[in-house]
Each structure stands twice: as structure tokens, then as C-alpha cells.
């Protein structure tokens, strides 16, 4: 699908609520907004201390569309998604995204404790300040969950992600330049604990198996282990983006304060432990704080 068509499709979904849903008594609006700040201690996923760069970004996301109950236990949804990240130290990483997500959710029974399954597919176009990362991201996935008693929610998810970048500049003869064409499988589990009506805590673990883009200065070890490389101007002169195969363990903790029935204040921490092929290990700590609104 061409980029223009993709953007048009996304915009159509985004503005569809303005014109009313088909069958106003059937569908309900979705309007989710997210704004916050994200700080990463190793935004380039580098292995050596000399290459590690930290950065923060203002982050915002907006999803709007329709949720359509199909029967007593099933709901389908389609949303148009807009996102933006404005980086402080590394402006080349600042980006805008526009995309579409469709999902289907089914509950096996009545009540909040009934288990559910959800499948989804999404596609989005991303444009970066430094255009080498521009491209399309496609995701499909499935998840299941249930509420345990009055205080716990548990869920497991699987997703497959593919990113297709526009550019693939060859830097070294014989070595592909399609660094940002990546795929990955992610398996995750998460537990939410509801302390009371306003405060909830969550913890999760994810295992990501696939391609990782690591940006470092030139070094032989990563060169030997990488399957593609190209110059990465977003990190400055002399930095090279390498595509490596890695298993990433991701631990997530956070808390969420309900401010109103439709909004919350959230803080979170994520520890990424990347185990790359050829001993290329890295660590990245991600801190998030932000506001969520959901209509």
C-alpha cells in the first residue's frame, strides 16, 4: 500500500466520529489520548559505555474510532491512531506516526471475571526528523486475560511486528544497508493489582525475540555480529546503526492513579536487558510519566 493511501485511510478513520457512527445506537466512540514524558538511559541500545546516549522525549498519542458490540459477548473496534515524539537531545529521532488499528474481543461468559481473548492488527506510517528511519510498521497479535477476585487482573499476549523502512543505504560493500527493516516476536504477561478505587499497580514481563537496531561507534565485534549497517546521523558523526539479532527481556513496573472516571496519571519504569548474538548485551532503563484520557 502506498504511503499516501495509508495516510488517507488513517485520516478517514480518525475523522469518522465527527460524522456520526453508522447506526448510532450500535457503536460507541473511542477517544483515547495520552501525553507524557519518556526518558531512556540508552536510547541507542549500545553495548559499550562510550557509545551510550540517554535522551528524553515528549510523547503524545491519540486514538479515535468506533467500538461495535457484535453480540452479547463480542466487540469489534477500529481506530485511527496518531502519535508523536519530540526528542530533547537527539532531535533526529523525533517522529510522527499515523495508522489504523482493528481489534476483536470476545468474553467467555458474563461478568467482569469472565476470561476474554483479543486479536488485533495494526499498521502505521512513521516519519522521523532524520528520514533514514521513515517507514511502515505492521503488527498483529493476540491476547487473553481474566480478573482474579476483586483486586487482580492477569493477561498474556503475543505479537508479531514488522518494520519496513524506506531507505537502506549501503555503507560497506557486501553488507546490506536495510538496518531498519526488522521483525520481532514478543511474548508477554502482566499482572495488575487494584489497591483501591483510585490506585492500581502493575508489573509485567516480556520476551522479545528478533531484530534490534543498535547504534554505536564503529567496532569490530558488532560489525561481525550484525546483518546490516548504515550511518546513523541522528546520533551524530561517526555513529553506525547495526541490525543485530537479540533476545530482549523486558521488566515493567508502574502505578496508575485514577484522577476522574475517564482520566489517570501514570508513572512507569521498564528495564530492558538485551542479549545480542555474539555477546552483544545491552541495558536500557526507561522511565515514563504521563496522563491518559479515555472516553
Amino acid at each position: 500500500m502506498s504511503g499516501t493511501l495509508w495516510v488517507l485511510l488513517s485520516l478517514c478513520v480518525l475523522v469518522s466520529p465527527l460524522f456520526g457512527p453508522p447506526g448510532s445506537a450500535r457503536a460507541s466512540w473511542i477517544f483515547d489520548a495520552d501525553a507524557g514524558f519518556v526518558y531512556e538511559t540508552n536510547v541507542g541500545l549500545a553495548q559499550k559505555a562510550r557509545d551510550v546516549k540517554s535522551d528524553g522525549a515528549l510523547s503524545t498519542a491519540l486514538s479515535t474510532g468506533l467500538a461495535i458490540p457484535l453480540d452479547d459477548r463480542s466487540t469489534a473496534s477500529i481506530t485511527g491512531d496518531l502519535s508523536g515524539n519530540l526528542h530533547v537531545e537527539l532531535p533526529g529521532l523525533s517522529n510522527l506516526g499515523v495508522g489504523v488499528t482493528t481489534a476483536f474481543r470476545h468474553k467467555f461468559g458474563l461478568g467482569p471475571s469472565a476470561p476474554w481473548v483479543r486479536v488485533f492488527g495494526s499498521g502505521a506510517r512513521f516519519e522521523f526528523d532524520d528520514s533514514i528511519r521513515d517507514g511502515f510498521r505492521y503488527r498483529v497479535g493476540a491476547g487473553a486475560g481474566m480478573r482474579l477476585g476483586n483486586r487482580l487482573d492477569v493477561r498474556v499476549d503475543y505479537s508479531f511486528e514488522e518494520y519496513e523502512a524506506d531507505h537502506g543505504k549501503v555503507l560497506a560493500r557486501g553488507v546490506p544497508g536495510d538496518v531498519f527493516d526488522t521483525t520481532a516476536h514478543t511474548y508477554s504477561g502482566r499482572l495488575d493489582f487494584f489497591y483501591n478505587e483510585t490506585l492500581s499497580l502493575f508489573a509485567g514481563y516480556a520476551l522479545r525475540d528478533g531484530d534490534v537496531v543498535s547504534t554505536t561507534r564503529r567496532n569490530a565485534q558488532i560489525f561481525a555480529a550484525s546483518s546490516a549497517l548504515t550511518a546513523d546521523r541522528a546520533f551524530g558523526p561517526g555513529f553506525i546503526a547495526y541490525k543485530i539479532d537479540a533476545i530482549v527481556h523486558i521488566l515493567t513496573f508502574g502505578m496508575s492513579f485514577a484522577m476522574t472516571s475517564k482520566s489517570s496519571l501514570n508513572i512507569g519504569y521498564e528495564r530492558q536487558i538485551g542479549l545480542g548474538r555474539g555477546g552483544l548485551d545491552y541495558y536500557n532503563d526507561v522511565f515514563r510519566a504521563g496522563l491518559l484520557f479515555s472516553y
Binding site: 495488575d192 478505587e197 489517570s264 479515555s294
Partner: peptide, 18 residues
């Protein structure tokens, strides 16, 4: 006791009924 019905306010990473 605290109220422990499913929370309506959004939680990061959760999609509610959608």
C-alpha cells in the same frame, strides 16, 4: 471497605472492553 469494582479510568497498556 475500598470500592473494588473494575476501574473505568484508563490504565496504561490496557484496552478496557475494546
Amino acid at each position: 471497605r475500598p470500592e473494588l469494582r473494575p476501574r473505568r479510568a484508563p490504565v496504561p497498556g490496557q484496552r478496557g472492553y475494546r
